[in-house]
């Protein structure tokens, strides 16, 4: 499956960032200085000081604790949604790639889903289900899978046209066997790569919906909600939205770096092609 010749640097860096953030999220109760929903009304909108290392928000809640606890819904939901979408998309894509009769229909359905920006489809789901965790997972899963389906289909088609598939088939192998032995090993690395990059996108989407007040519901800490609540006190306490934004950006960057590193390792040829200048003898 994944047999990289060289471990890419950005993969290591990305994985380090993600692991550090994930561990902080898991041990949040131990390292958070305060309860994330506890209000200290006498210390509202304080900047960073000795008591509150990252200051307090408009209700006097400790920003550091809130940011730490907010790792859980963001990464947890994003990974769940990515797992759902990648498995769904991969199944649909392989089906479309293997079965010519289904191909046209499935790809037209995929086109329709791609006609809406992700956040619009998510908003539509939330309009129907109402805000909440289940609604949020559904809202992010429904617009997410077509991208995976597209990639899985094109890789499957390339794999299916290979001579080895022809050989295996002529030896009497069934469709499922071909998918398991010839198609999945080709599809899997590609899907893993775009999944890793996709988690970053999902974190942004969760924060965006939280920002609009339609994601994780307060008082539960969530980066997007922290940002939108901090927006009204931007002039007095700019550290609140800025820190939340920084958390989102660093986490997303971690996943992007991991994904890009993975891609370079899975497909070293594309990496070289992108980075290096065309050599004269190649022309």
């Amino acid at each position: 499956m994944l047999k990289p010749k060289k471990i890419s640097k950005s993969f290591v860096l990305g994985l380090t960032i993600i692991s550090a953030i994930a561990i902080m999220g898991i041990i949040a109760p131990q390292i958070a200085p305060y309860d994330p929903v506890e209000q200290h009304l006498r210390h509202r909108l304080k900047g960073p000081d000795a008591n509150f290392i990252l200051g307090t928000d408009y209700l006097g809640r400790c920003v550091a604790s809130r940011l730490l606890y907010a790792i859980r819904p963001s990464i947890g939901l994003a990974v769940t949604v990515t797992l759902i979408t990648s498995i769904t998309g991969m199944s649909v894509g392989i089906m479309a790639g293997c079965c010519k009769k289904l191909d046209g229909l499935l790809m037209r359905v995929t086109d329709c889903f791609l006609a809406f920006p992700g956040i619009v489809a998510a908003l539509l789901c939330i309009a129907i289900t109402g805000p909440g965790t289940a609604g949020l997972i559904l809202a992010l899963s429904i617009p997410g899978w077509p991208k995976f389906a597209r990639v899985a289909r094109s890789v499957t088609r390339t794999a299916m046209s290979g001579l080895h598939v022809e050989t295996v088939r002529s030896m009497g192998a069934g469709r499922l066997y071909i998918i398991r032995t010839c198609v999945l090993p080709e599809v899997w690395p590609q899907i893993t790569t775009i999944s890793a990059i996709g988690v970053g996108g999902k974190i942004t989407a969760i924060a965006g919906l939280g920002f609009l007040g339609l994601g994780v519901q307060p008082p539960a800490p969530e980066w997007g909600t922290i940002m939108s609540k901090g927006l009204s006190t931007l002039a007095v306490a700019p550290h609140v939205p800025l820190l939340a934004g920084l958390c989102i950006a660093v986490t997303v960057m971690g996943f992007t770096l991991t994904g890009e590193g993975l891609r370079d390792m899975v497909d070293p040829h594309s990496y070289k092609k992108h980075l290096s200048c065309p050599l004269p003898e190649e022309i």
Binding site: F211, M227, P241, L242, V252, M253, T256
Partner: peptide, 29 residues
């Protein structure tokens, strides 16, 4: 390609693609 200018451009692009647009909006405000 491959020179310092390219690496800086790729770095900027990586950072920008990690920032949500609403975070940039808040920084701008």
């Amino acid at each position: 390609a491959g020179k310092a200018v390219d690496k800086v451009a790729l770095g900027i692009s990586l950072i920008l693609s990690s920032i949500p647009d609403f975070f940039l909006a808040i920084i701008f405000i």
